[in-house]
Design a protein around this nucleic acid. Structure first.
Lengths: 129, 129
DNA sequence: ATGCTACTACGAAAGTTTTCGTAGTGTCAA
DNA sequence: TTGACACTACGAAAACTTTCGTAGTAGCAT
């Protein structure tokens, strides 16, 4: 029954680093976060300890500097967050949501073509069933 | 200078109702929120007052029961939130984000086909330039 | 051994968001 | 005109999140 623990904003920043690196010590995470927004080492440490308690991350304590890994999956978290945005902002419509992504200037033509291929693939699979 | 004020979670729930209804009194918003998660009338009222101060909503005070409207745009808010999810969860990749949406069981075949059409359209437009 | 450095643990303040009670007031029916 | 009711305003507590200082300790160079 342990429902998925939703990460806070700061926790998400940390998870983001862990997803990217696979695993990292507090120091390594701190370097990234600090360069992004400036914070103190113990703040990051404390957050990671809290996340450990909550089960968002796991850690290996063999070495003096513990090595952390995300315990929650990137796509699970993403799915949840997207569902929330879809519900609250786009009235439950995946279409509207994707539309908004595509209207974003940051989405390149190349990416769009990749996305189209993916959709065609998905449609073929759906038909196959 | 006044950058877009980011709504909190509760504020977003209220905006969601306002976007859907176009305009509504506190009572009307309360009915929706209360049925979704149970809360007291004055909590919703207070939140809407705060949102008014922040400029997230506007209101018409002619009638005794003020009539509220969202002042922030649905798609502006959505864009911001999606950018955040894209950065923090999908490493900045629109492709991965859309992929996740499509893998969601709640996305129907019909919606997918709509999405594909939209992408083709977008690609044609991009080529035209 | 001594001191220096990098680390964990943790308490508690500060900051933010949410909740709700109480007070005051206009409207309307009896 | 009185009382019941629906509404706004607002203060302040409660809950949650973020920040950081201080204390303690292991490892290592001198």
């Amino acid at each position: 029954m342990k429902s998925t623990n939703k990460p806070t904003k700061s926790e998400l920043e940390i998870l983001s680093v862990l997803w990217e690196k696979g695993e990292a010590t507090v120091r390594e995470v701190f370097e990234v976060i600090n360069s992004q927004k400036g914070t103190s080492y113990t703040t990051v440490l404390k957050l990671m300890q809290i996340m450990h308690e909550k089960g968002l991350v796991e850690r290996n304590e063999d070495a003096r500097a513990h090595v952390y890994r995300a315990k929650v999956k990137q796509n699970e978290t993403g799915k949840q967050m997207l569902n929330e945005v879809m519900d609250k902002v786009f009235g439950g419509s995946a279409l509207k949501l994707v539309q908004q992504v595509l209207e974003n200037e940051t989405t390149s033509a190349e990416e769009m073509s990749e996305i189209r291929k993916m959709i065609e693939q998905a449609e073929r699979e759906a038909k196959g069933k």
